[in-house]
């Protein structure tokens, strides 16, 4: 808000440049603050029932003495704020703690699974983002054509259909009937990069299909919104071909909304990953978190939750920053 006011108010150029930096810094500050609030919320939500973790481990064998002993070994008898800062500082240092169920150090497992999930999400994003922006631009250029209407219908479908439905349809068609791809996305250390890519082809396709239509539709909407502006009409009257108008005039101005749409969908990928990993039995963070919830292994769930939330908050922060920087008024004034 400040940015547009400053930019339109004709303030000397150097000050606008500095104010851009300030706005970006402010956004980053808000991001860090959000991250902190999220960590408090995740920690607090596991604290609502005190002692529950201890009784969850003991189950039916619960005696007051055993519960006290377990609370002491887990450090649950210390005050809540102390435990919160202890938990957070160890998390930041990468010491994630022990699983409640088997007392194993969960650090190495989480690192490996985080790598797998990151691989899956990156490949899915690497395919879906350029593809959807390209198709969205085509839909904007060919507004109201059959292609355009097909995209609208498709996006209604993908919004309504759960991820696991898409996953199972792909399994039936490409794995069971055609036998082209594996239905289980196994990963192990001695697989080459290409073998890994092949193993995750169906989960990646599922994720791409889930986010594709939404990104296409909003890219189209952002570009069409710009296309109705007077300067586009001017360009049209000057006889510039339609595709050049879209590329050179509409896209630069639609960049901010397109970036935010991409960020929303990448964030969506993070959540979609949980369900898709379960469908394809993929050894990633989502599967780990779901198993931990079923076992009520609170420390593992907390850690996974905080990692997922941090990535989500981080993506939104980056997107907002890029959005601010992509504002042509601010960029060129520097």
């Amino acid at each position: 808000m400040d940015s547009t006011k400053l930019a339109m108010g004709g303030v000397p150029e150097t000050r606008i440049g500095r104010s851009t930096v300030l706005i970006v810094l402010k956004r980053l500050g808000v991001g860090v603050l959000t991250l902190w609030a999220v960590s408090v919320l995740i920690f607090a939500s596991t604290e609502i029932l005190p002692g529950d973790v201890a009784s969850a481990i003991l189950g039916r064998n619960k005696t007051p003495e055993a519960e006290l002993a377990i609370r002491h070994t887990l450090g649950l008898d210390r005050p809540v704020p102390v435990r919160y800062f202890d938990w957070l500082s160890r998390f930041v240092q990468g010491d994630i703690g022990k699983s409640l169920v088997n007392q194993r150090d969960i650090g190495p497992e989480i690192r490996e699974r985080l790598g797998n999930t990151f691989f899956l999400a990156t490949v899915a994003a690497g395919i879906s983002v350029p593809l959807s922006i390209f198709l969205g631009l085509l839909a904007a250029v060919w507004q109201n054509s059959i292609f355009d209407r097909a995209i609208n219908t498709l996006s209604l479908l993908t919004i309504s259909v759960p991820e696991f439905f898409v996953g199972y349809v792909l399994i039936i068609v490409f794995s069971v009937k055609l036998g082209w791809f594996p239905s289980l996305a196994m990963m192990n250390d001695d697989m080459s990069y290409l073998q890994r890519l092949y193993a995750i082809s169906l989960p990646v396709s599922t994720l791409v299909l889930v986010v594709l239509a939404h990104m296409m539709r909003l890219t189209r909407a952002a570009v069409i919104n710009i296309l109705s502006r007077p300067f586009i009409e001017m360009a049209l009257l000057k006889g510039i071909p339609r595709w050049r108008i879209v590329i050179e005039h509409a896209v630069p101005n639609a960049l901010a909304p397109i970036i935010s749409v991409v960020a929303v969908n990448l964030a969506w990928l993070i959540v979609g990953v949980v369900v898709v990993e379960v469908v394809f039995v993929f050894p990633g963070m989502g599967q780990l978190m779901v198993d931990a919830v079923a076992n009520r292994d609170v420390p593992v769930v907390q850690t996974c939750g905080l990692i997922f939330a941090a990535v989500y908050v981080g993506l939104n922060m980056i997107a907002d920053t890029l959005g601010i920087l992509s504002n042509p008024r601010l960029r060129h004034a520097r």
């Binding site: 959000t34 609030a37 999220v38 919320l41 995740i42 939500s45 596991t46 609502i48 029932l49 529950d52 964030a267 993070i270 959540v271 949980v274 369900v275 978190m289 779901v290 931990a292 919830v293 009520r296 292994d297 609170v298 769930v301 907390q302 996974c304 939750g305 997922f308 939330a309 989500y312 908050v313 939104n316």
Partner: peptide, 18 residues
């Protein structure tokens, strides 16, 4: 703050406790 956490992830944390 609540919207800053993905809903599914937040609900998983709650379900693991309760």
């Amino acid at each position: 703050v609540i919207m800053a956490i993905p809903g599914l992830i937040f609900s998983l944390v709650i379900l693991s406790v309760f």
